[in-house]
Nucleic acid binder design. Structure first.
Lengths: 147, 147
DNA sequence: TTTATACCTATCTAATAGGTAGACATTATA
DNA sequence: TATAATGTCTACCTATTAGATAGGTATAAA
């Protein structure tokens, strides 16, 4: 389950992808239009900057910009940066593998093998979805969409 | 991310699937062989019983049995019962949809649309994986498996 | 009647999520 | 150069949840 941090971060990145073809976007603008607590968003963007996904410009007229084009940052990148590994269990993670301490036979653990499949499926979606594609998806969807 | 509850529950169910073609298995046996805290497992199995996935028999010679054949219970069932919806966000859940309160336009929310894809991918794996298949997977895997 | 088991209620502790406060640094621009 | 608009940093707070543990009660087979 994605935390609010992850969700807010993704929404902010999508905002930057859509509305920033150059000029820096102030945190306050993102916070108000996306309904995100300003101070919380401050912390999130700061983290994304430290990871190299956004660039900040201080002072008047400052704000945040994507560090790379929107089609070169994936949703998986952002989720991993803010919420950690995609895999349901650390022992099934590709990027941050850690064995379970309660697991006797890691290689033949049924739970782990299933969760590796799950991880593959999840990263197949999130690592192949760029911010650009996500925005596009939202814009081209038919208006009458049935939940 | 799966919680320990979910993980322990799955391991216990896999144990039942493998080692119980009839006789009830006591909690203590599962707890010791699977390295799960006994009292914690008590609570988990009780929950699974309330959901109808296992059957308990009290008294001497008692224990737990699968309520249905192992090929008729999926990993997705167990995970949902113990850890809640598979979807990374409630607004992307099929089984327990709930809109985000911070989301202005639910239908065109880029984050939600991506997470719906993620949900589909995840449930595609977990809902199509039965306990029987999970055990089989672990048994037929080659010994020299490269992490 | 004894023993092995499930079942129930209560409680505990540590971590985490989610958020807030306020001082401080930086910079465009008037 | 003063000032206003912004990001940056450190510290803190509160509620909830994860992850257990303890101890007793009910049930049933031998």
């Amino acid at each position: 389950m994605l935390t609010k941090k992850g969700k807010y971060g993704l929404k902010a990145m999508a905002h930057l992808a859509r509305f920033a073809p150059g000029r820096p976007v102030p945190v306050l603008e993102i916070a108000t239009t996306q309904n995100i607590p300003k101070k919380f968003l401050d912390a999130i963007l700061c983290e994304l900057r430290n990871c190299g996904y956004v660039v900040s410009k201080m002072g008047k007229g400052g704000g945040y910009t994507l560090a790379r084009p929107a089609d070169q940052i994936t949703v998986g990148d952002i989720v991993r940066a803010l919420d950690g590994p995609l895999a349901p269990l650390p022992c099934a993670s590709k990027t941050r593998y850690r064995p379970c301490d309660d697991c006797g036979n890691v290689e033949r653990c049924a739970v782990r093998l299933v969760m590796r499949d799950a991880q593959r499926a999840l990263s197949g979606v999130l690592d192949n979805c760029t911010l650009a594609r996500a925005c596009e998806l939202a814009e081209t969807i038919p208006l009458c969409y049935h939940i």
